[in-house]
Amino acid sequence: MNASASSREQILDRVRAATPEGASSAEEALRSWSGLPRNYVCRGSLSAQSRLELMMERLREYDAEISECPPEELPAAIGAQLNRSARRSLVAPAGLPPEWLLPGFKWKIDGGPENGGLEIGEIERADGVLTACFCGVADSGTIVLHHTAAEGRRVLSLLPDWHLCILRASQVVETLPEYFSRARELPSAPALVTWISGPSATADIEMTRIKGVHGPRFLHVVLVRDQDAQASANEDWKENEENGVDRPGTR
């Protein structure tokens, strides 16, 4: 520890001596951070409908399987995906709405007061996993998990070979900066985040893209059309934001 403590002082001394123009405190540095150029596209320009279409198109490019449904038909849509992929034994985080856990399938619930955490082996042996998510980014077809109670701890959406993710239309943004602006609305920055863009893949052998190295090989998404006329909510939200009105909660 002593050695490391003195290395700390030495490194910081060297760094400060090499950057005499640098701020003396982090607060001061972060103040000048606000003045950095940010002329890139922050807010998307697509209509709500085109934004969702782009999201689905990008997901399809990653070979993800997608279905759409109105909110009241979500359990049926989940059942259809499970049946189509012949997945019977599933794991799910404790925070999912109970109606998502369809009867007729074998559910193992991870976490929560009654259940506790599943053994790694149980997660590994499951046919698949069902989770919610925090956000979808259409531009890159990215699904963002903050690993809350409905999104599950990280290992839950990692070990099973098949991941079914429920994405609500109101969670879809067009650009990555729009995700970050939603994340800034949270009481504190998320401690755990996973950005998922398609199934696990590698191109290490002759640049040939191979699906499913260690993460799930199959990513399925149910897009829930939870916005009236598919447009209004997000457009209103955008306007509110422009007028400086607090946006509705996104979770």
Binding site: G111, G117, G141, R154, A191, W195, S197, S200, A201
Partner: peptide
């Protein structure tokens, strides 16, 4: 990702903060 592998986004990006009880 665009510069490194010519993808809009790499399949997985992970972020963690210290240790989280019950996860990792």
């Amino acid at each position: 990702a665009r510069s490194a592998t010519g993808e809009r986004m790499n399949p997985y990006t992970s972020l963690w903060t210290g240790v989280s009880a019950g996860d990792g």
